[in-house]
Design a protein around this nucleic acid. Structure first.
Length: 746
DNA sequence: TGGGAGTGCTTTTTT
DNA sequence: AGCACTCCCA
């Protein structure tokens, strides 16, 4: 029961409820019962998912159904967590701070900070990000004398994380051959190293928190009784461990409210299990499945295309979006001769749109892989169109920031060998590989951290390495009484980082970033997050944790008046008036690596579904017959996804003027997805010729595989073989002596 | 110690 | 092609 007059807020809450459509209302007002009524909300793209989630929380609070501290809301990104908090603050008078809203990792981090002893961690434990983790693994391999040809550190990292995400410790790994057995051994050594150094990686945050609750009955009971309502966003992206963690927390009778869209599951490649949605349906008794299918974002043709496309997937829970907005404009399709031509087309259209009054920031250019951005950027740049690329280095990943943080980490936790090695000789202090090897050897001998070992050195190393230790000690003493931003400022100055970058040619920007770090610390110190975090262990460790979990803004400014360039993955959750989906070629989108197996292809199709549903009013689809990739020209057929779209939603654009009517025109365009385009002839000129008059890039026809494009060739005479891309029939090597290939160019 | 040359990789990515 | 990483030499 909420003590302070809920009646005062009820009218407002009732009003928000009437703003919703019927299924949204049902979801928001899912009754609070005992035993609990769980909700699985299948929320299609643009169906008001976040709104339902926050309104549900507001409804629970306003009606006195739940108290703030009984609510746990989990998201995947910090951005989503922030957005939920902001929206909620606008919707309810309850103090949003007393709710637990955060990412899986953020919440687990909080649990571990609060109960570090029970979790068997030092109070000052630090978080390893992906880069730190890889460095730690490389270092481990070196100490253990592991052949990094046979066991590449990256593979080991994947191996370790994949198992942690399934909830498996090194001892629980299924070993069926020597390689796996060895990897499991390294995994065990890695765990021991992390434990010794007092560091946890991202996956460990989750696994450790899970184990903490599953092994410690009093704690488990405490949290199970506390959280009566667990709400999860983007449920389709959860991995096994996250799902188990949720189940464990909900085990005491909490109501689960999971919102997700199986059709937008595009992270299986990194461990997300859509199957969790099916499992939820099976495992949570007393659940209600509610479908949100009304789309408030896109015009009709765009939605029709998305629906038609996704229907080619077999593994679905089933859902069909509809809108009461009109059909809108047809989807514009353009088949370019080359990637440069494609870029030219995009920029032509974008400029025209801007001239007609469109905002540049409402135009997004999407692509499957980052490598594709180069050509687009070049064209936008040379023709003076402002643009922003998403992706790339983020603030807390910058070299100078990581250096500064490493000093701070070492001050907070001297056992952090990763941090030690990062800055022991940066800026250079004459500590070379040789002295470090000696140091590592003596550290191993006395089973202590590098820092501890460094303190007991003698001889020349005592001067250099010992000097570094004394530097850290004096920094720690000097900053102990200072505020967080002052602490960081001191460390940057007296570690020698500032001096180093002042002398460096390109150091100016780095210095500015270091200033920005001080700024970020000041902002952090005044935030709610800091108040939460400071409950356990002081401001500095709290800030370091924040810096690891919140990698910071991408370079791109979201609202800026610039055309937005990003991968389809990065576009998930965003929407734009105008969207270009580029590079729709078989082998690129869907990507080669995914085409061969059905599950991979379905994920690619979901990716395409996500891309299409980003568009509000206008959607462009483009492909290129020729593309420079990895320094080589590649030829490809248009993507099979183009063929899977309903032709009546499409309009083919062409550089050539046609006397024919629009309708006849697109019809011909549609056919061209199945038959090699006539324009392909142009690119055959100049290509090397092979026996039988065939050339690279030529369109051919095969009795069984149908139409295709020659993309490579080997050998000559009787031995001559060509590689042909047959689109949806796949890519095949054919011996010219046997395969009857006929030229299909007219 | 730092830079230049040689080598290999290259889908998507948050925490 | 472009980038990150390693190795070797001055």
């Amino acid at each position: 029961m909420t003590a302070e007059a809920p009646s005062a807020r009820t009218p407002q809450s009732a009003k928000t409820l009437t703003d919703l459509n019927a299924p949204q209302q049902r979801a928001v007002a899912l009754p609070v019962t005992q035993p609990p009524t769980h909700g699985l909300i299948l929320a299609g793209a643009g169906s008001g998912k976040t709104r339902v989630l926050t309104t549900r929380i507001a409804w629970l609070l306003a009606g006195g159904q739940a108290r703030a501290h009984e609510i746990l809301a989990v998201t995947f990104t910090n951005k989503a967590a922030r957005e939920m908090t902001t929206r909620l603050a606008a919707q309810t008078a309850v103090n949003v701070r007393s709710l637990w809203i955060g990412t899986f990792h953020g919440l687990c981090h909080r649990l571990l900070r609060l109960h570090y002893r029970e979790a068997n961690l030092p109070q000052s434990f630090q978080i390893l990000d992906v880069t730190d983790q890889l460095a730690a693994i490389k270092r481990l391999c070196k100490t253990l004398n592991i052949d990094d040809e046979k066991y590449p550190p990256r593979e080991l990292q994947y191996f370790i994380n994949a198992h942690k995400e399934k909830g498996l410790r090194a001892g629980e790994v299924e070993t069926w051959d020597d390689i796996t057995r060895k990897k499991a051994e390294i995994y065990a050594e890695y765990e021991a190293q992390c434990q010794r150094e007092g560091v946890v990686d991202f996956a460990e945050l989750l696994l450790r928190a899970f184990e903490l609750l599953s092994r410690n009955a009093p704690l488990r009971t405490h949290y199970q009784q506390r959280f009566q309502h667990i709400l999860v966003d983007e449920f389709q992206d959860t991995n096994r461990l996250q799902y188990d963690w949720l189940k464990l927390l909900a085990g005491g009778g909490a109501a689960m409210f999971a919102v997700g869209d199986d059709d937008q599951s595009i992270y299986a490649f990194r461990g997300a299990e859509v199957g969790n949605m099916r499992d939820f349906e099976r495992e949570f008794a007393g659940k209600q499945v509610i479908r949100l299918e009304q789309n408030y974002r896109s015009h009709g043709h765009i939605l029709a295309a998305a629906n038609a496309l996704i229907q080619h997937n077999r593994e679905r829970l089933g859902k069909e979006l509809w809108t009461d907005a009109g059909a809108g404009e047809p989807i514009r399709v353009y088949e370019a001769a080359s990637d440069q031509d494609e870029a030219g087309f995009v920029v032509d259209e974008a400029r025209a749109l801007v001239e007609e009054g469109s905002s540049r920031s409402q135009i997004a250019v999407l692509y499957r892989s980052n490598a594709q951005s180069r050509v687009l950027e070049h064209e936008l740049f040379s023709r003076g169109v402002a643009y922003r690329v998403y992706g790339g280095l983020r603030f807390f990943e910058r070299q100078e920031i990581k250096h500064a943080l490493a000093y701070l980490r070492l001050i907070a936790n001297p056992d952090d060998d990763t941090a030690f090695l990062r800055v022991v000789n940066f800026p250079t202090r004459g500590i070379g590989a040789r002295s470090l090897e000696n140091l590592q050897a003596s550290a191993r001998q006395i089973n202590a951290s590098l820092y501890t070992a460094a303190a007991s050195l003698s001889g020349k190393a005592a001067v250099t390495v010992g000097g570094f230790v004394r530097l850290i000690e004096s920094l720690r003493a000097a900053i102990v009484a200072l505020s967080l931003p002052e602490q960081i400022e001191q460390v940057i100055e007296h570690s020698g980082l500032a001096g180093h970058y002042q002398n460096e040619k390109e150091g100016q920007e780095r210095l500015e970033n270091l200033d920005e770090l001080i700024n970020a610390a000041a902002v952090f110190a005044g935030s709610d997050e800091a108040t939460h975090a400071d409950e356990s262990g002081g401001m500095l460790p709290a800030f370091l944790g924040y810096a690891s979990l919140e990698s910071g803004e991408r370079q791109a400014g979201e609202g800026e008046e610039a055309v937005q360039l990003m991968t389809v993955h990065a576009a998930k959750g965003l929407e734009f008036d105008v969207v270009f989906i580029t590079g729709l070629e078989q082998g690129l989108f869907p990507h080669d690596n995914a085409i061969s197996d059905a599950r991979g292809l379905e994920e690619e199709r979901r990716l395409m579904y996500v891309a299409i549903t980003r568009a509000r009013q206008r959607l462009y689809l483009s492909s290129a017959q020729t593309r420079m990739l990895h320094g080589q020209t590649r030829y490809a057929m248009p993507s099979q996804f183009l063929v899977e779209l309903p032709p009546e939603c499409l309009k083919l654009l062409s550089r050539q003027k046609s006397a024919r009517s629009d309708a006849a025109f697109w019809r011909e365009g549609f056919v061209s997805f199945k038959r090699p385009p006539a324009a392909a002839r142009e690119r055959v000129d100049g290509a090397p010729e092979f026996p039988g008059g065939l050339k690279l890039g030529m369109n051919v026809r095969h009795a069984k595989f149908g139409f295709g494009v020659i993309i490579d060739a080997k050998g000559s005479g009787e031995e001559a073989r060509v590689e042909v891309n047959f689109g949806s029939a796949g890519i095949k090597w054919l011996a010219l002596a046997y395969a009857k290939l006929e030229s299909a160019s007219t």
